[in-house]
Simulated scan of single mutants.
Amino acid sequence: MSRTLGQVPVWLDKAQAYADQRKFDVGVLLTARLAPDQWHFTRQIQALVLGPLRLANLLRGQAPADNFELEPTIAAVRASVGETREKLDKLRSEEFAGAEARVIALPFLPGKGLQANDFVQQFALPNFYFHAVTAYSILRHNGVDVGKPDFLAPLAFRDL
Rank of each mutant, 00 (worst) to 15 (best):
L139A: 08
L50Y: 00
R78L: 09
A47L: 12
A75L: 13
A19H: 02
E83W: 01
R85G: 02
Q62R: 13
Y136N: 09
F130G: 12
L88S: 05
A63H: 09
E71S: 12
L50E: 04
A105N: 14
L109G: 06
Q115A: 14
P126M: 07
N67P: 03
A156L: 09
V103Q: 15
A47N: 09
G98C: 04
G113M: 12
V103E: 15
I74P: 00
M1A: 09
I45P: 02
V49W: 00
F123L: 15
E94R: 13
Y18W: 05
A75P: 04
G61K: 02
T134F: 04
V146N: 08
L139C: 09
Q21L: 07
G111C: 13
P64T: 06
E71L: 12
V28Q: 11
N127V: 13
Y18S: 14
F123D: 05
V28N: 02
W39M: 15
L70D: 01
N127A: 15
G61C: 11
A76S: 13
D20M: 06
A75D: 11
Q121W: 04
F157S: 13
T42R: 00
D25Q: 10
F157L: 12
Q122L: 12
L91T: 13
P9K: 00
A116L: 07
P72V: 03
D89T: 05
T42K: 00
A65W: 01
A76Y: 08
V133N: 07
T42L: 02
K14S: 06
A153E: 12
E94K: 11
Q46P: 07
K14G: 04
G147K: 08
L34Y: 06
V81A: 03
L91Q: 03
E86N: 05
G98N: 05
V10C: 02
K112M: 14
F151V: 14
G147L: 05
D13Q: 12
R60M: 14
M1G: 08
A32N: 10
Q21H: 08
Q122G: 13
D89I: 04
A116E: 04
P72E: 02
A65C: 03
G147F: 03
V26M: 03
R102H: 06
S93D: 12
V77R: 00
H131Y: 10
P52S: 02
I104C: 10
T134W: 00
N57F: 04
W11H: 01
L125K: 11
W11D: 00
K148N: 08
L29Q: 03
D159P: 04
I138M: 11
P52M: 02
N67G: 03
L58D: 04
N117I: 14
P149L: 09
L125N: 11
N142T: 15
F151D: 08
Q46M: 04
V49D: 01
V144L: 10
Y18D: 15
A153N: 12
P154E: 14
G51Y: 00
T73L: 14
A105L: 13
Y136E: 06
L53W: 01
F24Q: 08
A105F: 09
L160P: 15
N142K: 05
Q46F: 03
A63Q: 14
P9E: 00
E95A: 07
E86P: 01
F151N: 05
T31I: 09
L160T: 08
R22N: 10
